[in-house]
Amino acid sequence: MAAIKEPWGLSVLGAGSVSAEPRLAHVDLAVDLLAPTPKAAFAEAGAAVTRLRDVLREHGIPDSDVSGSRLQLTSQYKGYGADRTFHGYGCVATYTVRTEALAGLELLIEDAVTAGANRVDAVRFEVEDKPAMRDEARRRAVAAARRKAEVYAQACGVRLGPVIHIEDVDPESMGGHSHGRRTGGDPEDDGALTPGSVRVEAAVLLGFALLPE
């Protein structure tokens, strides 16, 4: 029979979440091509980057909302060992585009791909004030933990004492296990992101002292 080795009070896990309509999107694009010579690779990639920049401006996106990398050139090979052969020179330039025009996002991506951004690595929908949403999610997690603790205490015929332990919990590590968790991290970009809503989650482990009725 399992036993509690160090009984000290009541420990409960609480979770909370907040959802909101997205206000902006970040789109990760890349010009990624292969050419037989470095000169050809740079020329083709440079032309594609110019077309991409023009398309973004046509969609009303200022240069300040486009973060990009310099053209990177690498030698590409096919096969392994004795069968390994030179395949050409790969040239890549990556960009992250910020836009609040969500209604035209699909057309923006289509035009960017047509212009030469032949890789769409990610589309992230976000809100303007995610830290405020996370704070509210944390408050809801604390409230949920306290409600749970009150039910346990009432069922056991005791009263809740003061909070004597607070531990931040990564909500992604909960997985339905009462205290299975990963602590110490606070990824400010996590949360379930979908075109319909942005959801921010939080979880907390609270320890309460117990008092007799």
Rank of each mutant, 00 (worst) to 15 (best):
A3R: 15
K5I: 08
P7R: 09
V12L: 04
P22G: 08
P22Q: 09
V27K: 02
D28R: 13
V31R: 07
L34Y: 04
A35L: 02
A35Y: 00
T37G: 02
T37N: 08
T37V: 00
F42Q: 11
F42C: 07
G46Y: 02
A47Q: 15
L52H: 06
H59T: 12
G60T: 02
I61S: 10
D63C: 05
D63S: 07
S64I: 01
S69T: 04
L71N: 06
L71E: 04
L71H: 02
Q72W: 05
L73Y: 03
S75G: 12
S75W: 01
Q76M: 11
K78Y: 09
K78D: 11
G79A: 09
Y80G: 09
G81A: 05
R84A: 05
R84V: 00
T85D: 01
T85G: 10
F86E: 07
H87F: 07
H87M: 07
H87Q: 13
G88A: 08
G90H: 09
G90K: 14
T94G: 14
Y95T: 00
Y95E: 03
Y95N: 03
V97T: 00
R98L: 10
R98Q: 11
T99F: 05
E100G: 13
A101D: 15
A103F: 09
E106A: 10
L108S: 00
I109F: 00
A112P: 03
T114D: 10
G116C: 05
A117G: 04
D121V: 02
D121M: 15
A122N: 14
V123F: 05
R124F: 06
V127W: 03
E128R: 15
E128C: 08
K130H: 08
M133W: 03
R134P: 01
D135V: 13
A141L: 04
V142Q: 14
A143H: 06
K148Y: 00
E150R: 09
E150W: 01
V151N: 05
Y152T: 00
G161M: 02
I164E: 15
H165E: 12
I166W: 02
E167G: 10
V169Q: 08
P171S: 06
M174E: 04
G175A: 10
G175I: 00
S178N: 05
G180V: 02
T183I: 03
G185A: 13
D186N: 15
G191N: 06
G191S: 12
A192C: 11
T194Q: 12
V198D: 12
R199K: 13
R199V: 08
L205P: 10
L205H: 11
L206I: 02
F208V: 14
A209R: 13
L211K: 15
L211D: 11
